[in-house]
Computed example of a mutant assay.
Amino acid sequence: MIFRLADFHFPDSAARLYPDTPQRPWILEVGFGDGRFWPHYAATFPEAPNYLGVEISGVSLLKAERRLREAGLSNAVLTKLPATPLIREVVPAGSLDAIVVNFPDPWPKAGHAEHRLLRAPFFRLAASRLKPGGAVLLTTDHDEYFEFACREAEASGVMRAELTDPPPAALETKYARKWRELGLGVQHARFVPTHHPHVPHGTVARFPDSEDAPAVPHAILTLPAAFDPGAFHKHTARGGQTREDPVGWTVVLLELYRSLKQDGWVMLAHVVEGELTQEVLIGISARGDGSHLVRLASFGGPIITPGVKAAVGVVTDWLESQGAAVRHRGY
């Protein structure tokens, strides 16, 4: 089953995602590629564990979904998302039996190490989401990245590395077969938590069932009689940096369109928060009393994050700069 980000709850639960098998072990695989690992690995258990797979390639997502369906693995959820936001926002604390990372991108060029997955912050997040006795399983052909990951695990203060042989299923992936054909080997480690830190979920929510719910970010304002939508130009705003989140959010207002359904306009906004990127629509709709409602639209199933709330604020601020009088801010 393929899930969009909007299909998840924040956090979610095995009981909701796997209603027929909620008590089975729960394993997450980061970067599942074409899905060759999981059928082999699931077969090593008396009953196939619940599986959550995350991948950023849409083509790989479709290939893996077909492979798992043909293998009869119905208690599997696949999604096209960056791993860190999914683990942080969707996975409850202390719920996973294992996080599997097979042949991750080593980002080998100088200066690219910050893009690597297996850094100390990830290990702390993983330790918070693993059950006692759980582990992060890494298999890689890249010696330098393997040594890097082991150092980062130790630097996290919550993980220790156990160097072992990889599970046979890890040697059935596309990259493992390529390396075997070349006569090259791989390295494997189990990163076992020594401590389970508290890493909270973010302030993330699903779009509510009713667009009129108070949780939908909105503002009410009065536009000037001389309001000119043609005065809009691409606009970028940044903010939200804190000690816990030094990156914050970036909002880019891209286009302003005339609404086809009602009197008003629609703003297209690009919202970036770390690894999570969303494109959202923000409506500017006329009301009966002559004011306008600025509100996040439901189109595309947006996830209400701090950056998405900020996007409504950025649109409101731009309208205010054009002479609008803001009466209420609800974001």
Rank of each mutant, 00 (worst) to 15 (best):
residue 8 F to Q: 03
residue 203 T to S: 08
residue 104 P to N: 08
residue 18 Y to P: 03
residue 97 D to I: 04
residue 101 V to M: 06
residue 264 G to T: 05
residue 172 E to G: 00
residue 110 A to G: 04
residue 264 G to I: 02
residue 257 Y to H: 15
residue 135 A to G: 01
residue 85 P to S: 08
residue 91 V to P: 01
residue 301 G to N: 11
residue 48 A to L: 04
residue 177 R to E: 15
residue 162 E to W: 12
residue 94 G to D: 12
residue 91 V to W: 00
residue 282 I to E: 00
residue 70 E to T: 10
residue 176 A to K: 04
residue 231 A to Q: 11
residue 96 L to V: 00
residue 94 G to T: 10
residue 144 E to S: 13
residue 173 T to W: 01
residue 163 L to D: 12
residue 77 V to S: 12
residue 229 P to D: 04
residue 3 F to H: 13
residue 194 T to W: 06
residue 266 V to D: 12
residue 61 L to D: 01
residue 34 D to A: 12
residue 288 G to L: 11
residue 12 D to F: 09
residue 318 W to Q: 06
residue 183 G to E: 09
residue 70 E to Y: 04
residue 22 P to V: 04
residue 247 V to I: 15
residue 22 P to K: 07
residue 115 H to Y: 11
residue 318 W to A: 08
residue 280 V to Q: 03
residue 124 R to G: 03
residue 184 L to A: 13
residue 148 F to C: 02
residue 171 L to G: 07
residue 270 H to S: 12
residue 8 F to W: 04
residue 214 P to E: 14
residue 292 H to A: 07
residue 163 L to W: 06
residue 328 H to G: 00
residue 307 G to T: 10
residue 222 T to L: 11
residue 217 P to V: 00
residue 196 H to G: 03
residue 70 E to V: 13
residue 21 T to V: 10
residue 263 D to M: 13
residue 115 H to P: 01
residue 208 P to G: 09
residue 72 G to L: 07
residue 122 F to M: 10
residue 5 L to E: 07
residue 170 A to I: 03
residue 177 R to Q: 15
residue 180 R to H: 12
residue 184 L to F: 14
residue 86 L to Y: 00
residue 324 A to G: 05
residue 108 P to I: 06
residue 180 R to L: 15
residue 129 R to I: 03
residue 249 W to V: 05
residue 215 A to C: 03
residue 288 G to M: 05
residue 159 M to I: 03
residue 74 S to D: 15
residue 238 R to M: 09
residue 14 A to T: 08
residue 42 A to P: 00
residue 95 S to D: 06
residue 277 T to N: 14
residue 316 T to Y: 02
residue 45 F to I: 10
residue 25 P to L: 10
residue 242 T to S: 15
residue 130 L to Q: 02
residue 289 D to W: 06
residue 110 A to E: 15
residue 27 I to S: 01
residue 10 F to I: 04
residue 120 A to K: 14
residue 192 V to H: 06
residue 196 H to Y: 05
residue 254 L to F: 02
residue 275 E to K: 09
residue 236 T to Q: 14
residue 7 D to K: 08
residue 176 A to G: 14
residue 105 D to Y: 05
residue 32 F to W: 03
residue 94 G to Y: 11
residue 242 T to C: 10
residue 92 P to K: 13
residue 255 E to K: 15
residue 271 V to D: 00
residue 85 P to E: 05
residue 84 T to C: 02
residue 293 L to E: 06
residue 159 M to F: 08
residue 144 E to N: 13
residue 125 L to F: 13
residue 62 L to I: 02
residue 261 K to I: 11
residue 317 D to Q: 11
residue 12 D to Q: 09
residue 109 K to P: 06
residue 289 D to Q: 10
residue 122 F to W: 10
residue 45 F to E: 12
residue 139 T to F: 01
residue 188 H to F: 09
residue 114 E to M: 14
residue 223 L to M: 07
residue 143 D to H: 13
residue 155 A to I: 04
residue 294 V to E: 00
residue 82 P to G: 06
residue 131 K to R: 15
residue 212 D to Y: 03
residue 312 V to R: 01
residue 153 A to Q: 02
residue 218 H to C: 14
residue 144 E to W: 13
residue 32 F to M: 13
residue 7 D to G: 09
residue 69 R to N: 11
